[in-house]
Amino acid sequence: MVRVSAVSRTYRLGTAVFEALRGVDLTAHAGEFVAIVGRSGSGKSTLLNLIAGIDRPSAGSVVVAGTDLGQLSENRLAAWRGRTVGVVFQFFQLLPTLTVAENVMLPMELSGGVPGARRRPRALELLDQVGIAALADKLPSTLSGGEQQRAAIARALANDPPVLVADEPTGNLDAATGDAVLNLLEGLAAAGTCVLMVTHERDIAERVPRTVTLADGRVAQDTEAVPC
């Protein structure tokens, strides 16, 4: 489902050069739940952005769901992203002037993949899946942090993407709410979605079946949990 091959990402900061990623290789399959961990500045979010097609590598290739992202123009990449990858941000990124349901419907409208008459019913189904259907017509500002993150997950699933990437999805949540969000992500992986999650929280990473550790822009360790 995801294949990152010899990927490097270099940024120029004035006259200085910063290597965020250096020759990274990573493969993840449908139904796999992978935690990407490492210290601040290790390249975690950069790697996630490359897999989501938000950024492009300086070298190497990124292939997601059979598509080589390097072969796509910016317009085609944006259209591909809307159909193929759901993105969950740490700070939710819900549009404040739209209701929760309208936020979930927005990706459907932008991609055009869901007929107009089907969009609200699908949004309500997704909100019910994450446990907040009763809040569909509320504005994001009236929701708790955990409820907003659930709404963000529902929005990420709007176009039924085969890949979901989540950048610190529990970082701003209390322990109980973070646990509930993690349960949702585990359920998505069990249903066949390829889930890749960046986290700095050790206890969260320990619950995920596979952990990829980055250090100085390289894969330092790739381990799978040992079944009890």
Results as ranks from 00 to 15, higher is better:
residue 1 M to I: 11
residue 9 R to P: 09
residue 13 L to K: 11
residue 16 A to E: 13
residue 18 F to P: 13
residue 19 E to V: 13
residue 19 E to I: 08
residue 23 G to S: 07
residue 24 V to P: 05
residue 26 L to D: 02
residue 27 T to K: 08
residue 28 A to F: 05
residue 30 A to S: 13
residue 34 V to A: 04
residue 34 V to L: 03
residue 35 A to F: 03
residue 37 V to N: 00
residue 47 L to I: 15
residue 48 L to H: 04
residue 49 N to K: 10
residue 50 L to D: 00
residue 54 I to C: 08
residue 55 D to T: 14
residue 59 A to C: 12
residue 60 G to Y: 09
residue 65 A to M: 08
residue 77 L to H: 02
residue 81 R to W: 06
residue 84 T to G: 01
residue 90 Q to D: 07
residue 93 Q to R: 13
residue 96 P to S: 03
residue 97 T to G: 08
residue 99 T to L: 02
residue 102 E to D: 10
residue 111 S to R: 00
residue 111 S to L: 07
residue 112 G to L: 03
residue 113 G to I: 05
residue 115 P to L: 05
residue 121 P to V: 01
residue 122 R to W: 07
residue 124 L to Q: 05
residue 133 A to L: 07
residue 133 A to K: 02
residue 140 P to W: 00
residue 145 G to L: 06
residue 151 A to P: 09
residue 156 A to N: 02
residue 157 L to F: 12
residue 159 N to A: 06
residue 163 V to G: 03
residue 164 L to Y: 00
residue 174 D to S: 04
residue 179 D to K: 14
residue 180 A to Y: 09
residue 182 L to K: 06
residue 188 L to P: 06
residue 189 A to P: 15
residue 189 A to L: 13
residue 191 A to R: 15
residue 193 T to D: 06
residue 197 M to G: 07
residue 200 H to V: 02
residue 201 E to L: 04
residue 204 I to V: 15
residue 210 R to V: 12
residue 222 D to K: 00
residue 226 V to P: 01
residue 226 V to I: 14
